[in-house]
Design a protein around this nucleic acid. Structure first.
Lengths: 251, 251
DNA sequence: ACTCCCTATTTACTCCGACATATTTCCTGT
DNA sequence: ACAGGAAATATGTCGGAGTAAATAGGGAGT
C-alpha cells in the first residue's frame, strides 16, 4: 500500500475551457504531461517511449492510469503502440492539431510562431466565409446571441477571462448561424486558438486598439444580410488580430 | 534508439465496419462499436450509458478494455464520465466531427445528407483557398507529388481503393504545398470525407463524368503559379463533386 | 556464404479483484 | 423547512497474472 506521494506534478495552471469541478483525473493529468512534452518537442516524432512498466513506475502511477493516458494520446494521433515495437511518437502530419486539447498543449509552453501564423491563416480562410454564410442564414436568435456577446465584450474587456469568453461566444454564434456542423466543430478549435493568442497579446502589453468597432461592423453586416460586406469586415478583423499578435510576439 | 526506420509502412487502407478480429485491438473495437452507435443516434446526447461493470459484462470484455475505449471516446469529445453520475453522451457541438476516426464512424452507417452537405461546404471554403496558397508556395517536390497522384488516378480509376487513395494523395499534396500545419491537419479529415463520399457515389452507379480533366486544370494552374485560376479550378472541382454526390444520394 | 523458417524473447494487450475517491442521495438534527 | 452530514454508488486507481503479437536471433537447408 504505497500511499503517499501523490504529489508530483501539480503545477498545472487551469486551462480547461470550462470551470470544471475539483479533481482532474489522474490519467488526464498524465495525458496533459505527455501531450505537452510531445508538443514542445521534448519527444520528437519517431522517438520511442520507455516501456509501460518502466514509464508508469517513473511517473509513480499504475499501469492502468498510464495506459488510459496513452489511449487518449493515441486517439489524438500523437502516438501509436504496437507489441514488441513499443510506443512511438507519430510524424507531425498525423497529429490532430485542431483538437482543442492538443491546441491547449501546443500553447502550454512558448508557442511556435510559425504555428500561430498557420492558425491565423486558417482563420482568415474560414471565418470570412463563415460570416458570408451567416449573413445569408442567420435568424433572430443568432443575432441576439451575437448582440449579447458584443455587450459582454464591452462590459468586461479582453483583459479579463470573461471578456475573452464573450469574444469566443461572438465567433461561435457566427459559426452557429452558418447551419454547418463541420464549421461549428472548427469553432471549438478556432475559439481555443483565439483564446490563447488573445491571452498572449495581453501578456505583452495593453492592447493599443479597441477591437469592439471591428466586431460591430461584422455584426451590422450580418444583421443586414449583406454577405459580401460581412466577409470583408471579418477579413479585416482577422487581419488586425494577426497584426496585433505578431507585433506582440516579436518583442 | 536514435533512428529506427519508422518511415513508410503505412498501409492502413481497410476501415469501416468490418475488421473486427485480429489486427484490431479489443478496446479499439469497442470504441468503434460505441462510436458508431453514438454517431448513428442509437445513443442520443444526454443519454447515460450503463455502468462500467454492467456494460463491460454485456460486451463480454473486461472492465479495463471497456474503460480504455471510453477514454478514446472521451478524447474525441463524444462522452464524459463523472463518478457516481455515470458516462453521458455529450451534446453534438462538443463532438470532434473532424477527427478522421469520428468521420469514419459517421459514415459507417447511412450518412446524414445534411452532414455531407456541411462537409462539402467546408471543402468549398478550404480547398480553393488552399489551392491559391499552393500556387504561390509550391516547389518542385510538391508538383511531382501531385503529378504522381494524377498518374495513379488515371491508371486505377475511382472505382478502386487504389484510385481513391491517389485522389486523396492529390488533395493532400496541395494542402502540403501550403506550408500550413493547420491546413494539413484538415487534410486528413477532408481526405477521409472525400473517400467516404466518393465511395458512396460509386455505390450508386458508375460515375458519368471523368474527373481527371478537372484535376488536371487545378494542377496546371498551381504549376503555373496562377493563384486565382487555381482557386477557381478547385472551386469547380468541388462543386462538381458535390453535384455528383448529391444526385447519387437522392435516389 | 546465403536464404529461409522457426524458435525465443520482448512488449504491449487483456483480464481479474480489490481498494480509494468523488458525487449524489437521503436522512438526520436543529 | 432548511442545513449539514452520513451512507450509498459508480467511476477512478491500483498491482499482479496471464495471453497474444511482433521483432530479433539462431539454426536448418540450399
Amino acid at each position: 500500500m504505497p500511499d503517499a506521494d501523490l504529489t508530483t506534478a501539480d503545477e498545472n495552471t487551469k486551462q480547461g475551457e470550462e470551470a470544471r469541478g475539483p479533481g482532474r483525473r489522474l490519467h488526464g493529468a498524465i495525458a496533459h504531461k505527455l501531450g505537452t512534452a510531445i508538443l514542445s518537442g521534448k519527444y520528437a516524432p519517431g522517438d520511442i517511449l520507455s516501456g509501460e512498466v518502466a514509464f508508469a513506475e517513473e511517473l509513480q502511477v499504475s499501469r492502468s492510469a498510464y495506459r488510459e493516458a496513452i489511449q487518449v494520446l493515441t486517439a489524438k494521433g500523437l502516438v501509436a503502440s504496437r507489441p514488441k515495437a513499443g510506443t512511438r511518437v507519430l510524424p507531425r502530419d498525423r497529429w490532430n492539431l485542431l483538437d482543442p486539447e492538443v491546441l491547449g498543449w501546443a500553447f502550454a509552453g512558448e508557442p511556435d510562431i510559425e504555428f500561430v501564423r498557420s492558425l491565423f491563416e486558417l482563420r482568415a480562410i474560414v471565418e470570412p466565409a463563415a460570416a458570408r454564410l451567416a449573413a445569408q442564414r442567420r435568424d433572430k436568435a443568432d443575432l441576439k446571441a451575437m448582440k449579447d456577446a458584443l455587450a459582454a465584450m464591452r462590459r468586461h474587456t479582453l483583459t479579463t477571462e470573461a471578456g475573452r469568453a464573450a469574444d469566443r461566444d461572438f465567433h461561435k454564434a457566427i459559426l452557429q448561424a452558418t447551419r454547418n456542423d463541420a464549421l461549428l466543430t472548427l469553432s471549438a478549435s478556432i475559439g481555443a486558438a483565439v483564446n490563447w493568442t488573445t491571452q498572449f497579446k495581453q501578456r505583452a502589453r495593453a492592447l493599443p486598439r479597441n477591437p469592439i468597432p471591428d466586431h460591430v461592423k461584422v455584426y451590422d453586416a450580418i444583421a443586414a444580410g449583406e454577405a459580401a460586406a460581412a466577409a470583408e469586415a471579418m477579413n479585416v478583423l482577422v487581419d488586425l488580430a494577426l497584426e496585433d499578435t505578431r507585433s506582440s510576439m516579436e518583442d
